[in-house]
Computed example of a mutant assay.
Amino acid sequence: MTIVDPGSVGSNITTLSKSVNSNRRTNMSSGENSRQLVVLDVDGGVDDAQAMMLALTHPHVQVLGITCVAGNVKVNQVCQNVLRVLKVFGRPEVPVFAGASVSLLGTHVDACHYLGQDGMGDVPDPDPPSADLVQSEHAVSALLRLSKEYPDEINLVATGPLTNLALAVRTDPGFPARLRKLTLMGGNIHGLGNVTPSAEYNFWCDPEAAHVVLEGYRSLFPITVVPWETCVQDHDISWDTWMDICAIPTKRGQFHAAIQQQMIAKQKQHRLFSAHFHTYDLYAVAVALFPEVLYKTLEVYARVELKGEITRGQMVCDYNDKWGKHPNVRVVKKLDLPSVLNMLRRALE
């Protein structure tokens, strides 16, 4: 286990990277000075939409595509939600790909009770985008193709269950080596869950896929993970601050405010760990594109529990090096929250 401050993040990653790519990766600057190529893998909820908004609006970011996976809602609805965000933000040229409709074991449990039946607050869309805009190519095929067209350049950010990513590495074991880096929102580091007492939703939805990703991508570099506990325990957003963001009067701002009203109501009702607002997927995109927002990270070896009767889906971290394995995840513990919220403001203005 290694505790890392922002100044040493690059060197720690490099030591675990393949030498042929290490110099190229460590010399790349953050998104402020160079073009960042991004692929987003999403499951269509309100927080996925926020993550998309940040990536779609930054002038130094090129979103090569958005791959969709069943999670918060069914995969066809995920695609529709993504198309809706692209329309509001004036980015219809970004290709959208439908991916896995069920977990590796053939199951699917949505989060409609929390995010609305459509995953986006059930806000009516009087002029919905045509489903014909979804590409005919499968999401997994698109991931593999894009990684060959842009080797060592793609920042892959996943904010839903990891089924598409697991299928990609199982189909082509060389896929991770062609990525620049991988950032996930999901998992947990203290056994604190939001769908069971011990498991976070994205990992719990497809534990086998999460296991495959943590093991199948670790040979290249530590995977950056924004765990659920970090989002809800250490990054409280005051209601005054959040409602000020929701009051941005632009078309984008009004759309953002409308789709999250159901989630806001749920958070006020249940008061997760505090009486403040919490968001999630936004942080994964911020960390992936702007590493300067990182304040504290932790490098550790982690696996996903697959067999436990009450712990299935939990990400178990080997803090005491009992397994004697090199770290495979870089856990985000603390980030510059005001900077991230300012990024969101700019995206909505």
Rank of each mutant, 00 (worst) to 15 (best):
P173T: 02
N155V: 03
R91A: 12
L115T: 14
G119I: 10
S147C: 09
H108V: 11
Y201S: 14
E93L: 01
L115P: 00
P128I: 09
A168P: 01
D172Y: 02
P197R: 12
S147F: 00
G119C: 13
A98E: 15
G90N: 13
V157P: 00
L133H: 12
V96Y: 10
T196C: 08
W204V: 08
T171Y: 04
L192G: 04
N164Y: 01
E137W: 04
Y201P: 02
V102N: 13
L105K: 14
L179R: 05
A98D: 09
T183W: 01
W204I: 10
A131N: 13
R145N: 11
C205D: 08
R91F: 01
F89P: 06
M120L: 15
G119N: 14
E200V: 07
A131C: 10
P207A: 06
V157M: 02
A131I: 14
V123T: 14
L182S: 01
G191C: 07
S136Y: 08
L104I: 01
I154L: 03
V88S: 05
S147W: 06
E153V: 00
P129E: 05
D132M: 05
D206I: 05
P129C: 06
V88P: 03
D172C: 08
P176M: 00
V169C: 06
V94G: 09
E153F: 07
